[in-house]
Each structure stands twice: as structure tokens, then as C-alpha cells.
Computed example of a mutant assay.
Amino acid sequence: MQPVILFIHGFGSNGFGSKAQIMRDYCAKHDIRFIAPSLSHIPALAWQTLTELVEQLSALLAPQQLCVMGSSLGGFYAHCLAVKYHLKVVLINPSMHAGTSLQRALGEAINYYDNSPYEWRESYVDTLLQLEPTYPSALSDDNCWLLAQTADELLDYREAVIALPHARQTIETGGDHGFVDFARYPAQIIAFFKGTD
């Protein structure tokens, strides 16, 4: 049975970011359904979109068929969804404490799709703090895979290592926040979601 993959982009990004496109292209070649919505920058709206999408898809699919992955802030949302709905998840340089890490973004931010500005507000940070699950996460190595690079310039990879003690962890020396050479991983990610790795 082929997985159906929900990809969640990071802060200021969109469903056409580089990692989403790499996964989209791979899935298209292998007849795997792939969804990467472009979410609102407002966390309450993004979370509503994601939970409604997961609930609708889960009602239509076989158990465990829906899988989720996310990068940075998208990794935070993906982890929250995995905990809430018992989904398999892949986290790429995730923000485990998004409310805390995004305090530094307060004020004007930039949408990377068209470079349009938007305001990042304290109330948005509060929403993320409320969403944050309890750590350490109970997700295990058969349903959660952490991909992190130590030279991430925006997030300390060790926070994810500590928050996900039971997850499968692939920690690469060097790299950056965008996760250098992510194109090495789509086949392995699909195998993980299928349980055939």
C-alpha cells in the first residue's frame, strides 16, 4: 500500500519550497500521492487547515496510510499532528519549541514566495506555545524519524535530539537550516513510511 504524504513547510515558506518540490517530483515518478499546502502565516489558521485536512484524509484512507513530514516550523506542526493523530512522521531540522524560537521574528517578516511583508505578532507566538506538546516525545523509532544537520544556523539541533529520545535519529555534521543535499533522502523516507526500510 502506497503512503499518502502531507508535507508541511516552514516559517515564511510555502508548498513550493525546495524540499517540498524534491518530494513532489519523487512522488510523481512513483505514483505516490503528495500534498504540500501553502499555509497561512497565522498559526491558528494554519493549525485549523492542517487538522481539518488530516481528519478528512484519514476518513478516506486506510489506517496508517496517511504520513506527515515537515521542516523547521513545519516540523513543529508535523510533530504536533503525529502526536494528536498517531501518524508516522519525518522531521527535517524541526523547531521543537517554535513559540520560543520565533520570539526573535516578532515584527515584520517576509513571505519567501513573493517577498511580500507580513507582521509576525506576539499572539502568534502564544498560539505556538499553547500547541507545543509535552517533551520528551513518546514517538518511537518506528513512527518518527529525525533528520538534522549540526550546522543549522537558525535552530540548535540538540533541542530536537533531546526532545525526541526514542525516535530514529540521523544527525549529519555540517549542513545548514535548509538541510543540504536533501535530494538523497526521498527514497529512504518513502521506505520508512511504508515500513520496508
Rank of each mutant, 00 (worst) to 15 (best):
L164C: 01
L164Q: 05
L164G: 10
L164K: 10
L164P: 09
P165Y: 08
P165S: 12
H166V: 00
H166C: 09
H166N: 13
A167R: 06
A167E: 09
A167F: 08
A167H: 03
R168I: 05
R168V: 08
R168P: 07
R168K: 11
Q169M: 08
Q169F: 08
Q169T: 03
Q169I: 14
T170E: 06
T170A: 00
I171P: 02
I171S: 00
I171T: 11
I171D: 09
E172C: 04
E172Y: 11
E172Q: 10
T173H: 15
T173R: 05
T173Q: 15
T173Y: 05
T173A: 15
T173M: 09
T173G: 01
T173V: 13
T173K: 04
G174Q: 02
G174C: 09
G174E: 04
G174M: 06
G175A: 05
G175F: 14
G175S: 08
G175N: 10
G175Y: 00
G175I: 00
G175R: 06
G175P: 04
D176Q: 03
D176S: 13
D176C: 15
D176K: 07
D176G: 09
D176H: 02
D176L: 03
H177M: 03
H177V: 01
H177A: 09
H177I: 01
G178K: 15
G178T: 13
G178D: 14
F179M: 00
V180Y: 13
V180F: 14
V180A: 14
V180D: 15
V180S: 04
D181Y: 06
D181Q: 12
F182Q: 07
F182T: 03
F182H: 09
A183F: 08
A183K: 07
A183T: 00
A183M: 13
R184S: 13
R184K: 14
R184W: 10
R184M: 01
R184F: 09
R184G: 12
R184I: 01
R184N: 13
R184L: 08
R184A: 12
Y185S: 02
Y185R: 01
Y185I: 07
Y185E: 11
Y185N: 01
Y185V: 02
Y185F: 11
P186F: 02
P186T: 02
P186G: 05
P186W: 00
P186V: 00
P186K: 10
A187H: 10
A187V: 14
Q188I: 04
Q188D: 15
Q188S: 15
Q188Y: 00
I189F: 12
I189Y: 02
I190A: 03
A191D: 10
A191E: 07
A191M: 11
A191F: 01
A191L: 06
F192N: 02
F192H: 04
F192M: 10
F193R: 01
F193W: 07
F193E: 04
K194W: 06
K194C: 15
K194R: 14
K194P: 03
K194L: 15
K194S: 14
